[in-house]
Amino acid sequence: MPVALLDLLANAAIPLKLTLKVALTATAGACLAGIGAGYALSRRGLPGRELLDSLCTLPLVLPPTVIGYYLLVVFGRKGVLGQWLEETFDVSLVFTWQGAALAASVVAFPLVCKSARTAFEGVDQGLENAARTLGAGEGRVFLRVSLPLAWRGIVAGTMLALARAMGEFGATLMIAGNLPGRTQTLSLAVYEAVQAGRDDEAAFLVVLTSCVCVALLLSSGKLLNRQIR
């Protein structure tokens, strides 16, 4: 029995590593884009603010397969950006882990964006104005006042984004496929194991995924909250 368990673990190591790589990359991307978008959306003067906000929320509402389809249209071999990427950089996102990361980050983006917007709107405008009268430009106001004061809300959103990116399935399957060793993340591996009737492997992967998610959320939450405080 221990031998079988070790076997399962060895088999699971590859999708596990891939999942972590994809999820962390996706979270970093979603975090940067989400903070920027959330800040822009929290500014009163932005024209068409509510329309932009609903566009940013769209990935949360649309079925992941629809997002995957959109991504294929844009980043696929014949897509507008995909063609350009292939011609200039010789890079293709289809059937690669980078494609999986892109899909996961698009799906996770609204979670950061929404929480960041709320957090930025919660920052006392008087403090931002105080910084302006003290000679700070908008960049410094953002880095020294708004961002540190909105940090907790952003961390909460980033945690949700990480959780979402870990479990991404639909959009990833659309753009990156299900290639064992290359784009097969844990959630895809579970699906395949169940489909193929490998119940032991499926059960093991499910328990492993759950444990990894809990550990990741606990540790990264602590880490992020310790900074800038």
Binding site: G126, L134, R144, V145, L149
Partner: peptide, 25 residues
């Protein structure tokens, strides 16, 4: 009126805020 002190900075950092230079102050 409410002083608008930066709650995440200490007294010295508050007083020195306007003397900071560059993006990171």
């Amino acid at each position: 009126q409410d002083y608008a002190l930066f709650p995440h900075l200490n007294v010295a950092e508050n007083v020195g805020f306007g003397l900071g230079r560059g993006l990171f102050g």
